[in-house]
Amino acid sequence: MKNMAAGNHCTVTEFLLAGLSEKPELQMPLFLLFSGIYVVTVAGNLGMITLIVLSSHLHIPMYYFLSSLSFIDFCQSTVVTPKMLLGFLTEKNLISYPGCMTQLYFFIIFGIAECYTLAVMAYDRYVAICKPLLYTVIMSYKIYSSLILAVYIFSVFNASINTGFMLRIWFCKLGVINHYFCDLLPLLKLSCSDTYINDLLILIFSIVNIFVPPLTITASYISIIASILRIKTKEGRSKAFSTCSSHISAVALYFGSAAFTYLQPSSMSSMYQGKVSSVFYTTVVPMLNPLIYSLRNKDVSVALKKILQRKNFMKSEILSNGKTYES
C-alpha cells in the first residue's frame, strides 16, 4: 500500500480489494462467468430501454418507470462489475482512493434509486388497479416525471452526505477491503478516526431506506389484492394480477438479497455469505430484471415480437429489392 503522511496522521492512497475468492484456480472461471452476466445485463437493459422508446403503445407511466429501472440496473452493474472483472485478471486488485470514493458514491446513488423506483412502480400499479378511472389524471406527465426526478434527487442527496462524511475519515490501517468493491461498512472497518457521525448517518438513512420503500410496496399491494379479490370474474382477477407479477418478482429478488446482506450478524463466516448475496443484487438481479419483464409481461413480449417482425420484414424487402434490381 502507498501511504501519505499528514501531520500526526497517515492515510492510504490506495486500497486492495480482497475480491470474491483468493484461489488462483477460480479466477478465470469467475472472470468468464461474470463477463457473460455483464454482457447479458448490458444487452438486456439497453434493449429494454430501446424497446420502450421504439414501441409507441409502451409510452405510458408504467413503462417509463421500467425504462428508468433498466437504466439504474445498467448503471449499478457498470459501477461494480468491470472493476471486479479486472480483479480476476490481476495479481493485486488495487483501487485508488479517489476511485474508491467515486465507486462508493455511484453505488449508493443507484442502489437507493432502485429501492425507490420499485416503490414508485408499486404505487403506479396501485393507481392503475384501484383507481383506473383516475389513472390518467393521477399519473399525468407532470406527476410521473416528478416522481422519477424525486427518486434521483433523494439518491444523490443520500450518496453525497454519506460519501462526504466518508471523505473526512482517516484510513491508517492496512488498506485491504474485505469485499470486491468499495462499500460503506467494509470501508468503515479500516478507519482509525472517530466514525460516530458516519455510523449515525448510516443508521438514519438505513432506517428510512429499509422502511419507506417496503412499506410503500406493502401498502400498495394490500390495496391491490383487496381490489383484485372484489373482481367477480376469474379472468378479470387473472388479468389484474398479471400486470403486477413481474414487479412482485423484481421486488422479491432485490429486497430479498439486500436484506440477506445487511440484516445478518457480522462475522467472518457471514462476510463471505455477504459477498455472495452482494453479487446477487449488484450483478445477477440487474441481469434478471429485463428477462423477468420480457418473459412475464405480455405488453413487452408483444412489443418485442412486433419489433422483430418489423426487422425481418425490412430484411426481406431489402433482399427482394436486391433480386429485382439484379434481374
Rank of each mutant, 00 (worst) to 15 (best):
K2P: 13
M4N: 09
A5E: 13
A6M: 10
C10Q: 12
E14C: 01
F15P: 10
A18T: 03
G19D: 03
P24E: 10
P29S: 07
L32Q: 07
L33S: 10
I49A: 08
I49M: 12
L51N: 02
I52M: 05
I52D: 01
H57K: 14
P61R: 05
Y64G: 07
L66S: 08
S68F: 11
S70D: 03
M84W: 04
L89E: 08
T90V: 12
N93K: 03
L94Y: 15
I95S: 04
Y97P: 00
P98H: 09
P98Y: 10
G99Q: 02
M101W: 08
Y105R: 13
F107S: 10
C115W: 02
L118M: 06
A119Q: 04
V120C: 09
M121G: 00
A122H: 03
Y126F: 14
P132T: 02
L134P: 00
L134W: 05
L134V: 07
Y135L: 06
T136F: 09
S140F: 05
L149W: 12
S155W: 05
N158C: 13
R168Q: 14
K173D: 10
L174A: 09
L174Y: 15
N178Y: 09
Y180T: 01
D183P: 09
L190F: 10
C192Q: 04
C192F: 03
D194F: 09
T195K: 09
I202G: 02
L203P: 01
I204W: 07
F211K: 00
P213T: 06
L215R: 01
L215T: 13
I217K: 05
T218P: 00
A219D: 01
Y221A: 06
I224H: 03
A226V: 14
R237P: 00
Y254A: 04
Q264L: 08
S266P: 13
Q273V: 10
G274Y: 04
K275Y: 01
P290K: 08
L295M: 12
N297P: 00
N297G: 08
V300T: 11
I307S: 14
M314D: 14
